[in-house]
Design a protein around this nucleic acid. Structure first.
Length: 887
RNA sequence: GGGCGUUUAGCUCAGCUGGGAGAGCGCUACCCUUACAAGGUAGAUGUCGGGGGUUCGAUCCCCUCAACGCCCACCA
């Protein structure tokens, strides 16, 4: 029979995506609305870079956050999900500089600061929304009216207010200090932005003459001989018997023949290298500390671009690598090079530029984070903020318990300019929240603002505050600061726990005395199928938008949600997306089946007395899925939530309930038809409700057909656990019924019966309830296993001879097939089964015979083992009787 | 050097406070059966990384070794 159906045979994700996103936006479904929970639930989206293109990390961010926010919205929280974008100082500036160079062969200095910034803004207005469009393809349900850009007016106010506050407390200070200098960016960067990589290099031993002791030579070991122009001492350990008598004398640096003191310092390791250390306070972090202890002068031998300056005449203008070769040659000529051997060195590289970082002394702004770190640590220790999974707090603690002052100034133009002003008339230097009109000291008009901008993470650290209007009173009022701050949950990757989570905690608590959020859920990092990082150079990146185009956003989202959970890595195989696309389609087709019968369905569930056994069963199963999904979603176990609904849809609803419904729907009993249609409609409503947070488009599409467009699923109430629907007895019966059905199919398959071959089945069971259940469901066995006729009796009855058989613990199945089956084959099958069952029985029996087990194991466990033993025994008995029926 | 993590079916991973191991994908056989071949039915597969210990009992707890991965620090 062909059913009339105007629904497409496969689900079309693309049209559903565009249609429903548009509908939701128009209906303002993403806006916070008070609900039955009388509580708010706020999530702050990690702002992607304006220059960014959506990658898998963003897709995972979007999926988990959207699933959570949709779930909470349906639970009746007043939900707010705040989107935004980050100005991303360095990368944005680089992108625009590159573009201008390509088009006009001009660099930013040619244009001047004002014109350059105008160009960057222009670029941002034109291209900065690309990532937002891409996020919308994923179905994100954030309130776009809250969208904030980190350089907007309010974030700028936040930055200035916070800066001035700390400046006035002396926690932000300016200092000549050795910093990580990125020669490409020509800016200082923070410790956190330096990545160490192993680089092959050499270990050089160089002769230094001692002036006061002619003939004596110190052998100095170094990996960077080219920095000798910046040496201001040679250091040995004061306890080193070999050299301590030389302390106070003078060493002569080869090539330049400059004289430097020989000093004793505890930093020098007697065992390491030669025990003699060249001290270059201007270009080495340890040497800088030694220099401070001994009051050594600092010589800067590098230009801002990383080349050597005129203080290193022989290598002036060279890059370090070239300079090193030159120095090596000069030293060899002077016979000052004693040894050169291979050495692996861990060298700092810029996170953005990937260029070797040069330690260099310069005047920078720093933030003292000592006390803020302590507060941030305490908030996690005392549970004000909790990490999910909990293990990530270790990473957080490791960073915050060893705080270093944070270098916050960058020699860039694109960013929040440091709100510090210098008077040219007097020496005044002050911080101000708004541009001053005069010098605070001399009232003069001739002053200028610090040209540097702040580290991007400075404004990111204030993001939970500034997105809700802080510190602007009116904006805070409008955006509901008091209502939505602190946020509920932050979702992000572990790679930015230091950069972002820790900074938001420090800065948020400093500004408000409250942790900016209650939970931090750390999700996995998306990697390729083999567990490798996705990168441009490997070419192994998977573009989420390609996947969405190919399989649909729902399948993409389901895959990411199913792979997340508490993992550290999510190894993504596009085949998995295909698999879940099939799941999406499966549900769609289940709906296609039900759809033509919907006009018969009533709105409300019929009274319980009219429920069929199968109805009771599916409602009980549905109910337990609702219970576990609620629990899983609350714990950020999106993986568990996915496997729950997946298993329910496939293994309960489609495989059994729908199959069992066909007999009724195609039958003659009109009343039963109405009941079943009503039940199916009800189940579908619950299923799409449960699944909606993960697959919003498919579910909204199905909902529209179920409800005839009267309402939107996005704002429906989530399915809650209902104790009245529990029904363990029916579930047990149904499981046994499934056992029997599967057993019959098993027999059919074992004797190679074709699906078209009808069979006669003799069942034997002592379970009276089951017998009744099966009797009542006897018509369904025709559909499920092509059973034409059959009987069910207790095990006392005589078994038919020469049959294909199967035994479960509760039921024996006989399919008389005399002449059609190979008797020996059957006997072998049964013998094999007996062996297997005996092994099982042996295991449990030995436990029951073990006095220690019986004395120590809890009652519950003992009973369980007893039950297993008797079940195995019964099955053995059945098998043996079956066997004997063949002889 | 310090820390964290991982090691379970061919692949990707679950496995809650210890009671005898699961899913998806893949694979094999048979089926275009009237929602779905992006499908159905049936099926195979594991010394739960190695060794030791605690326990009546260990994939789970403890010790140890190994491999892999990540983070931090530092290397003259």
């Amino acid at each position: 029979m062909e059913i009339e159906n105007d629904l497409p045979k496969t689900f079309d994700p693309q049209s559903a995506q565009d249609k429903w996103y548009d509908v939701w936006m128009k209906a303002q479904s993403f806006k916070p609305r008070p609900g039955k929970q009388k509580q708010t639930f706020t999530v702050l989206m990690p702002p992607p870079n304006v220059t960014g293109k959506l990658h898998m990390g963003h897709a995972l961010d979007a999926t988990t956050q959207d699933a959570l926010i949709r779930f909470k919205r349906m639970k009746g929280f007043e939900t707010l999900w705040i989107p935004g974008t980050d100005h991303a100082g360095i990368s944005t500036q680089a992108v625009v500089e590159k573009l201008i160079w390509k088009q006009e062969k001009k660099n930013r200095h040619d244009l001047g600061r004002e014109e350059f910034l105008r160009r960057v803004w222009e670029w941002k207005e034109q291209y900065g929304l690309e990532i937002v469009n891409q996020q919308q393809k994923m179905g994100v349900s954030c309130d776009w009216d809250y969208s904030t850009f980190t350089l907007d007016e309010v974030p700028n106010k936040a930055v200035n207010k916070f800066f001035v506050m700390l400046f006035n407390e002396g926690l932000i200070y300016q200092s000549d200090y050795i910093v990580n200098w990125d020669p490409v960016l020509q800016s200082a960067i923070s410790d956190a932005e330096v990545e160490h990589k192993d680089v092959k290099g050499f270990f050089y031993s160089i002769k230094y003459k001692v002036k006061e002791a002619p003939g004596t030579e110190l052998i100095v070991a170094t990996t960077r001989p080219e920095t000798m122009y910046g040496d201001t001492a040679v250091a040995v350990n004061s306890d080193d018997e070999r050299f301590k008598h030389l302390i106070g004398m003078t060493a002569i640096i080869p090539i330049s023949n400059r004289e430097v003191p020989i000093i004793g310092d505890e930093h020098v390791d007697i065992e390491k290298g030669t025990g003699c250390l060249k001290v270059t306070p201007g270009h080495d972090f340890n040497d800088f500390e030694i220099g401070k202890r001994h009051n050594l002068p600092i010589i800067n031998i590098l230009n801002k671009d990383g080349t050597f300056n005129k203080l290193a005449p022989e290598i002036e203008g060279m890059k370090p690598k070239e300079a090193r070769a030159k120095i090596e040659q000069l030293l060899t000529e002077l016979d000052a090079l004693v040894e050169k051997k291979d050495h692996m060195n861990s060298v700092g590289h810029g996170q953005r530029s990937d260029e070797i970082i040069e330690p260099m002394v310069s005047k920078q702004w720093f933030m003292n984070t000592q006390s803020m770190s302590e507060e941030a640590v305490k908030a996690v220790e005392n549970g004000e903020m909790t990490f999910y999974p909990k293990g990530w707090e270790n990473t957080y603690f490791a960073w915050l318990r060893n705080p270093k002052d944070w270098c916050i100034s960058r020699q860039l133009w694109w960013g929040h300019q440091i709100p510090v002003f210098y008077c040219k008339s007097c020496d005044a230097k002050w911080a101000a929240e708004t541009n001053p009109s005069e010098c605070i000291e001399c009232k003069g008009k001739d002053f200028f603002q610090d040209p540097d901008v702040l580290d991007t993470w400075f404004s990111s650290g204030l993001w939970p505050l500034s997105t809700l209007g802080w510190p602007d009173k009116q904006a805070m009022e409008e955006k509901g600061f008091d209502k939505f701050y602190p946020n509920s949950t932050l979702i992000t990757g572990f790679d930015i726990i230091f950069f972002w989570v820790a900074r938001m905690m420090m800065m948020g608590m400093k500004a408000t005395n409250k942790s900016p959020f209650a939970h931090t859920y750390i999700h996995a990092i998306v990697r390729d199928k083999q567990g490798r990082k996705m990168s441009k150079s490997l070419g192994n990146g998977i573009d989420p938008l390609d996947m969405v185009a190919q399989y649909g956003a729902d399948a993409m989202r389901f895959t990411l949600a199913a792979g997340s959970g508490y993992n550290r890595d999510l190894n993504l195989d596009p085949e998995r997306i295909e698999g879940y696309r099939n799941f999406v389609n499966k549900l769609w087709n289940a709906f296609r089946f039900v759809y033509p019968f919907l006009d018969k369905a009533k709105d409300d569930l019929p009274v319980k007395s009219e429920w069929h056994l199968h109805d009771k069963w599916i409602l009980a199963e549905l109910n337990s899925v609702a219970a576990s999904m609620n629990k899983s979603m609350d714990q950020y176990r999106f993986d568990d939530a996915c496997s729950d609904i997946y298993a329910f849809v496939y293994d309960k609803f489609c495989s059994w309930y729908i199959e069992l419904s066909k007999n009724i729907l195609y039958g003659e009993d009109e009343k039963a038809k109405v009941l079943r249609a009503t039940m199916l409609r009800y189940c579908f409503k619950k299923i799409v409700t449960l699944l909606h947070p993960i697959c919003p488009f498919l579910t909204e599409e199905i909902w529209s057909h179920l409800e005839g467009g009267k309402s939107l699923l996005i704002t429906q109430e989530y399915v809650e656990f209902d104790p009245k629907l529990e029904n363990a007895e029916v579930q047990e019966m149904m499981n046994k019924f499934i056992d029997v059905t599967t057993g019959i199919r098993n027999v059919r398959s074992a004797v190679n019966l074709k699906p078209k071959d009808e069979i006669d089945v003799r069942l034997f069971s002592d379970d009276k309830k089951l017998a009744k259940f099966i009797f009542e469901s006897r018509h369904f066995l025709k559909d499920l296993a092509n059973v034409k006729s059959g009987t069910i009796r207790n095990k006392g009855q005589e078994r038919p001879k020469k049959s294909a058989t199967f035994a479960s613990t509760h039921t024996e199945i006989f399919v008389p097939l005399e002449g059609l089956i190979d008797i020996n084959d059957q006997i072998n099958r049964i013998k094999k089964d007996i062996e297997k069952t005996q092994v099982e029985y042996g295991k449990v029996e030995s436990k029951l015979n073990n006095q220690n087990f019986m004395n120590n194991a809890p009652e519950e466990v003992r009973n369980e083992v007893r039950e297993k033993a008797s079940a195995a025994q019964e099955k053995l008995k059945s098998l043996n009787e079956i066997l004997s029926s063949f002889q």
